[in-house]
């Protein structure tokens, strides 16, 4: 069990300023630890991993880890990752985005990357808010929540990221929570090794911008809420609609085994080369 922290320190770029920029108790830090543990557990070398991150709190993650990293433009992390994966399919491309990055600004890229089923491992760190830019409401802010741009409560319905990705055609869709780090490790390893577009949504509490405005006194209260409301998917499906309200199902939602875009492309290329050779 123990001695994981030394391992994490091994994968960090110590010339960057530490401790990291995340606020006290931010779930992104836990997700970063889980990411490093998962990469180590899979036995990948630092050089074969490419990490592409967008803009926002989650975008800082690419700065801290000692892999090949790209800090992309806002919402376009998936497009850059698509280019990297197609040019060298042997690389393990991990895309880290926030909810604003993946669903609001890069929403179109997100659904089309899922539709193409390209072999990317996508982590969406969902904190229900635009944290870094000052707490504006995002497309995953729950109905009625107070933010700096919705002082009387959010009036729009929020996206369900998991259902969106499943409908768009992703091969693997799962949800983990920052409070359940061991479960997150398992799901993250599955996400990294799964064929095709694999998505892991991490429910990550943001106290500074979201919690303080929504009746969470301390960051610990947010984790208590997460502990109480998180439910394994199997149990969640058995609950009545009334009881399921407000609960967060965690687990694997979609597990398909369809060939990914780069595999199809490799097949096509082999076919065409063979035909050209026969002529």
């Amino acid at each position: 069990m123990a001695e994981r922290t030394q391992l994490i320190h091994h994968y960090l770029r110590h010339n960057k300023k530490f401790p990291h920029v995340y606020c006290a108790g931010c779930g992104h830090g836990i997700a970063l630890g889980s990411l490093i543990r998962s990469v180590h557990a899979l036995g990948w070398s630092k050089d074969e991993v490419v990490m592409v991150a967008g803009i926002g709190c989650s975008g800082r993650m690419a700065v801290y880890v000692d892999f090949n990293t790209v800090h992309a433009v806002h919402g376009r992390a998936l497009t850059i990752a698509t280019g990297i994966k197609l040019s060298n399919p042997n690389l393990k491309v991990i895309v880290v985005m926030g909810d604003g990055d993946a669903l609001s600004i890069g929403g179109n890229h997100f659904i089309h990357a899922a539709r193409r089923n390209i072999g990317l491992s996508v982590l969406v760190l969902n904190n229900n808010i635009y944290g870094m830019t000052g707490g504006q409401c995002s497309s995953t802010t729950p109905l009625g929540a107070t933010t700096t741009t919705t002082p009387f409560g959010q009036m729009e319905k929020s996206f369900d990221l998991v259902e969106l990705a499943a409908a768009a055609g992703a091969n693997y869709v799962a949800r983990a929570s920052a409070f359940h780090a061991q479960g997150m490790d398992k799901l993250m390893q599955a996400t990294f090794t799964h064929r095709g577009f694999s998505l892991l949504e991490v429910v990550s509490p943001c106290h500074t911008q979201y919690g303080r405005k929504n009746k969470f006194k301390t960051v610990v209260d947010m984790y208590r809420w997460l502990k109480e409301s998180a439910t394994p998917l199997e149990q969640y499906r058995k609950l009545s609609a009334e009881k399921a309200k407000g609960r967060i199902p965690l687990g694997v939602f979609v597990d398909r085994d369809e060939p990914s875009l780069e595999e199809r492309y490799a097949d096509l290329r082999a076919d065409q080369t063979a035909q050209a050779g026969r002529r």
Partner: peptide, 19 residues
Amino acid sequence: VDCGFCELHCPDFAILVTP
């Protein structure tokens, strides 16, 4: 009791539990 919760959940990688 060496459950490892603090080490896994410390967002700042500031806790180390060793035998």
